[in-house]
Design a protein around this nucleic acid. Sequence first.
DNA 1: TATTGTTATACTCTATAACTATA
DNA 2: TATAGTTATAGAGTATAACAATA
Lengths: 144, 144
Amino acid sequence: MSDSSDPAGRFAEAARVTRLLYATAQRARDDFTAAVADLGLSSAMARTLLLLAEPAPMRTIADGLGCDPSYVTGVADDLESAGLARRVAGTDRRIKLLELTAAGHDRRSDVQTVIGQHATVLRLDDAQRAQLEGLLQLLVAPPA
Amino acid sequence: MSDSSDPAGRFAEAARVTRLLYATAQRARDDFTAAVADLGLSSAMARTLLLLAEPAPMRTIADGLGCDPSYVTGVADDLESAGLARRVAGTDRRIKLLELTAAGHDRRSDVQTVIGQHATVLRLDDAQRAQLEGLLQLLVAPPA
DNA sequence: TATTGTTATACTCTATAACTATA
DNA sequence: TATAGTTATAGAGTATAACAATA
């Protein structure tokens, strides 16, 4: 380990851990994508299924996915084509709710099962995962 | 905390920590991009500068960036336009080495300094960062 | 024939802007 | 007039395939 008080040492230390952080996040993404691909789902479709415990407006789904509403249109189309969801009118008729079909609920349950079995972070035991969570929270917390 | 032995509980636990992992990696990326933008550099340019302690072939740079060699062409063009690097012929004349100019070495040093000051992971103290590194290594290690 | 770097092109993901139908 | 969703388009980032020069 290098002396973290000198500038070059601090950089090297940061670079090493940052690279590892990127690699881990990428690994988690790849594992998720592979797991849901086995269920015939794109990553976006799977994430949207997970948001739909209850019917939700397109706008709410966009917020949940962290994307623009225009992007949700295509994902909703894909889920409808696959027979996993349907659009239904809200009481405010500008709003369309996306609602899972019976098959959609089943598939959503399948996603939860496979992710609960194969999620990358579950390679850690409960204590390790709690430790990881605490450290990550420090990193994403607003500046002190 | 939910009972991690039931499928729904395991999924919820995994989802929570995974989301946090994604958010942290994104935060680290955003911080890096912002820090090097202040130096007039794109993220790709900054990463390439960091690889060029010594002149290196395009192919080697591609491996370092984890991208296709065709992508390096544009990054090298950008660095040349900015007067930070130049292409020089290798002894094998198929090979072009990318070599930093004096200004390029200075800028590379600036990048190391600002990252050593502002890297997201440096918000953790040495012990915490060592702990994080150990946990992440468990996650990216090949399956047992 | 195989390899390096480049070019031209295409693909994925996602956003912006303009449009419609309500409100 | 403001908002929800859609459409068409554009952009960033990156890869693939074909090519010229060299080995």
